[in-house]
């Protein structure tokens, strides 16, 4: 019963965050005018703020769920979509396109970034594989590959420093200029992937008990972990491809969700998804209002909110 209330509460919270995000921005929108059918207000909401907010909500949900999956199946509380190399891979591809191939059609950038992210995730997994996946080896492999890719990104940014502005903005992670096209590109991936994550729930839970216990319960450990991680990489890569690497959503939100939901992954998933969506939507709303009409990337605020909590976790984890 308590759980159902919690979900409703979170849902109301997300709707409130979305409403706030509709109201906030460079142009002030008054509810009265909107209800009276003011065409400018309607146009701003319909063409700009609504799609952008929905993209943000979807991206936040994807990152949070991907993080929860990774933390469970690697039994590493500090795992998140970025340590799998996904963000760095997507980032390198996106920056390379922005800088080296200026003629590349812009609508295809997310698709290329998605490919880069998935590829990097695959390389990290392959490097960590030695007859099986050990969480420690996976984390180290992720850090190593991420560092190499980030170095490549830095080299590109320095070489083309005069024209690097657009790439820098992308790298900070944000939702500026995201529209219905982005939502149309993202939703067909994201929604089925989130559904699959829910289906895999019991397997994720069993893997979280450790390899031997999971095997004893009849799980095909390596195959199922591979499948779950591939899905997490897909979720994270599609989010990063559209919104850039939004920091800390995938790391912090799963922990927060676990505290309030407890129990199984199927209970955790909706809580994490709603919290992740709310965090990104709010961060974006703040990011575009605080210095309006200038905009900051939303990633700055997800990081500003997430980093202190991350440090708190580090202290508590007694590593």
């Amino acid at each position: 019963m308590r759980r159902r209330w919690l979900l409703w509460l979170l849902l109301i919270g997300l709707v409130a965050a979305i409403a706030l995000s509709m109201a906030m921005g460079a142009v002030r929108i008054e509810l009265g005018k909107l209800l009276a059918g003011d065409s400018v207000s309607l146009m701003i909401i319909k063409n700009y703020r609504l799609p952008r907010t929905l993209v943000g909500a979807l991206v936040g949900a994807e990152l949070a769920v991907a993080g929860a999956m990774l933390q469970s199946v690697t039994r590493n509380p500090l795992a998140d979509p970025h340590v799998t190399g996904v963000s760095a891979g997507a980032g390198l591809v996106a920056v390379a396109i922005f800088l080296a191939v200026p003629t590349f059609p812009m609508p295809l950038v997310p698709l290329a970034a998605l490919a880069g992210g998935v590829l990097a995730g695959g390389v990290v997994y392959a490097v960590a594989w030695r007859g099986g996946i050990h969480p420690g080896r996976l984390a180290l492999s992720g850090i190593a590959i991420t560092t190499v890719l980030a170095a490549g990104t830095s080299a590109l940014l320095l070489k083309y420093s005069l024209t690097a502005n657009a790439a820098m903005v992308w790298l900070a992670g944000g939702l500026w200029g995201r529209n219905w096209d982005h939502l149309q590109a993202l939703a067909p991936w994201a929604l089925p992937a989130l559904g699959c994550a829910w289906l895999l729930g019991p397997r994720i839970d069993v893997l979280a008990l450790g390899d031997d216990v999971a095997r004893g319960l009849g799980a095909a450990v390596e195959r199922e972990r591979g499948l779950i991680m591939a899905l997490a990489v897909l979720l994270a890569a599609s989010a990063v491809a559209v919104a850039g690497p939004l920091g800390f959503v995938g790391l912090v939100i799963p922990h927060l969700a676990r505290i309030v939901s407890g129990g199984s992954f199927r209970r955790l998933l909706p809580v994490a998804a709603l919290l992740g969506a709310a965090l990104v939507v709010l961060s974006d709303a703040i990011a575009r209002t605080i210095f309006a009409p200038a905009e900051l990337p939303a990633g700055v605020f997800t990081a500003l909110i997430g980093a202190p909590y991350f440090l708190y976790l580090l202290r508590r984890a007694a590593l």
């Binding site: 469970s72 839970d205 979280a208 008990l209 450790g210 319960l217 009849g218 129990g263 199984s264």
Partner: peptide
């Protein structure tokens, strides 16, 4: 064996039904 943080007794026992 080591359980993930926050796992309750009943949730753990339920995993026994996985097979």
């Amino acid at each position: 064996p080591v359980a993930p943080e926050g796992l309750t007794v009943e949730s753990l026992v339920r995993h026994g039904r996985f097979p």
